[in-house]
Design a binder for these strands. Structure first.
Lengths: 353, 353
DNA sequence: CACGTGACAGGGAGCGGTAACATCAGTACC
DNA sequence: GGTACTGATGTTACCGCTCCCTGTCACGTG
């Protein structure tokens, strides 16, 4: 079943590294010293305006680009960040990565990426190798592998965690992190369902990043408890539609279950299918709400009610925080990203009477 | 509507770059010269077995990791690759990236990433800046921005294109590339629909990476022509469910249209919704087939018939090709990845009579 | 008019590696 | 036994850049 696709090797050219222009050439061309060129590149003071302009023009003309390796080696400012993340295909991860990359690119940072296998238990040594010389990192720690990687890093290494929730109780270890406060959002979604007349709401969770309950889970419990309803047992699933489907089959078979909150939209999709197969009508006699509001969700059948989460903004803020960390000169983080919002669509409705 | 989420700055530690262990320290500890250490690191000959073992042990003990920047600066072998890609959230891109990253990581390569904005028209200069010192690159060029970036790179720069189709006719410019041969797959999907009794098949395409027709489009035309059917006008859409939905509304309103082949699964999802809204029954009186076979597709309502494409394998092969390019010593590319396969599900069926 | 002062500019030493060349055995050969 | 060769090491010169430190100039000041 293999052997398809195609390859064209092209005219194999050896990695010919020509005489890349260096600051020396720029200096010579501009009639100044290499040091002055360096000052101009780094926007340092003590360079006369006209000299600066001249150098800048020369750089432009020679199409000179500073050698990153040399800058890093010579102890220049940090200008790169390595992102440690789990599967980049999942919507939340991909979006956060996108936000990080965008923010990094606009300030001239290079972004490296290394994916953490779900079951990887890396020692400090291995995690550092993943960073491969990077001098700063961002760890997207929505699940255990990320949390472990974050913990494995030396305490003085510049890193910020993009996490599911702050490691409260666990003595937040003083590491900078950003997170979406979705506890209230989960509560709101739950209350919305309760308000629709459902006697209870069942929660199908995504894997937890720690041993304790996630914010979403807590928000769900909060709402249930506040309404005086018993909290049904927590159901755990993975990240994929398949996993949601498998976990939901049992749930949908129980007619007492009329409302399901799923940890993310993919899970919700699986729930939707399980419901269909079990002859349940959504939203007729079963309501389903997801988290993330992926681009697909509005087009599903039925269109999925979902909690919109601004992962991209989260990623941007995470990078901003890191930037502040490695360069105190940098602009303060725009600590503002869209707050979770419940997007009502077709998959949720009044409880069956 | 902003201001949610949360930030913890932690105990702000300045970017303290301690005295990283260098090969000199290893050399001293092992009682050899730094050059011998270098030889060991790079697996070069002319080192006695016991000396090698000693150095290796010392490296292990000191937790030494070679400084990438220094290696790069000193003209060592290429050990990093920059991936230029469009939106990482789209399934095909994300999967290909995943394949590249995985293959790169297993051979110790670092992978950088830079995303190309859809409308970005970058000059050679800008593209090179994106590479930021990298000495090798992979461009995922499924659309125009990627194709342009690929073209903008200097002809002698080590780069491989992961493309939609070879730039045939356009004098393939002798650059190494990998692609999935999905022309036949598109043909097969079309023939399948024709075989089900549909008088014609309409194609809703994703954006093209060039001005000419894509392989998928051609495969679709091939099958239609071979069957003696007229080729309906080509419909173009974007990449998202929304774009598929918008483009399909007109199509589904036409009762003559009984089979739609969509350029990817997201588009197909949009088509499905448009069909539902138009009162068309899938597969009752409209069949829909997508491309990609994303993880969600099997769970949609109706489950989507789709052409499974092995983007991950493609990415792996692309990296392998690059590896061969920069390091002739490297193992030859496993030129084998899964061939496109039509996965029959619920969204396709006999033509309405 | 000599001197301090600050803004500019240049020189030189690394950063941590690799490549090329120089040494120095130990072995092979005539 | 002397020369040639070969494998194992050490020595030296960069790679391209940034830091630290030393000059140089034009002012202002006493």
């Amino acid at each position: 079943m293999t052997g398809s696709g195609n390859i064209s090797t092209g005219t194999s050219t050896p990695p010919d590294r020509g005489p890349a222009t260096s600051i020396w050439e720029v200096a010579r061309a501009a009639g100044v010293s290499h040091q002055t060129v360096s000052r101009v590149i780094n926007g340092k003071p003590h360079v006369k305006a006209e000299t600066r302009a001249l150098v800048l023009a020369t750089i432009e003309e020679l199409r000179f680009t500073p050698n990153r390796a040399a800058q890093a080696l010579a102890g220049g400012p940090v200008r790169s960040v390595t992102v440690l993340t789990a599967d980049t295909a999942a919507y939340g991860y991909a979006s956060a990565l996108r936000g990080i990359e965008e923010a990094a690119r606009t300030v001239g940072f290079t972004v490296g990426i290394s994916v953490l296998e779900p079951d990887a238990v890396l020692g400090a040594q291995e995690v550092i190798e993943r960073l491969s010389g990077g001098r700063a990192a961002i760890v997207i720690a929505f699940e255990a592998a990320g949390t472990r990687a974050l913990a494995a890093l030396p305490p003085d290494y510049p890193v910020v965690g993009v996490v599911e929730r702050p490691a409260a109780g666990h003595a937040s270890d003083g590491r900078p992190q950003v997170w979406i406060d979705d506890r209230e959002a989960a509560s709101r979604a739950t209350r919305h369902l309760l308000g629709l007349g459902h006697r209870s709401v069942h929660y199908l969770s995504i894997p937890s990043s720690t041993q304790v309950l996630s914010q979403r889970t807590q928000g769900w419990q909060d709402a249930l408890t506040a309404a005086g309803r018993p909290v049904p047992p927590l159901r755990s699933a993975g990240w994929t539609p398949r996993s949601g489907y498998l976990a939901a089959r049992e749930l949908v078979a129980d007619r007492e279950v009329t409302a399901i909150l799923a940890g993310n939209d993919d899970l919700a999709l699986g729930v939707l299918r399980a419901a269909r197969e079990a002859g349940r009508d959504v939203p007729g006699n079963l309501s389903v709400i997801g988290f993330d509001d992926a681009p697909q969700s509005a087009y599903l059948a039925p269109a999925l009610t979902s909690v919109r989460l601004d992962f991209e903004g989260l990623g941007r803020a995470g990078f901003g925080l890191l930037h502040n960390l490695v360069d105190p000169q940098s602009a303060p983080v725009p600590s503002t990203w869209a707050e979770p919002e419940l997007i009502l669509r077709e998959s949720s409705g009044p409880a069956p009477r």
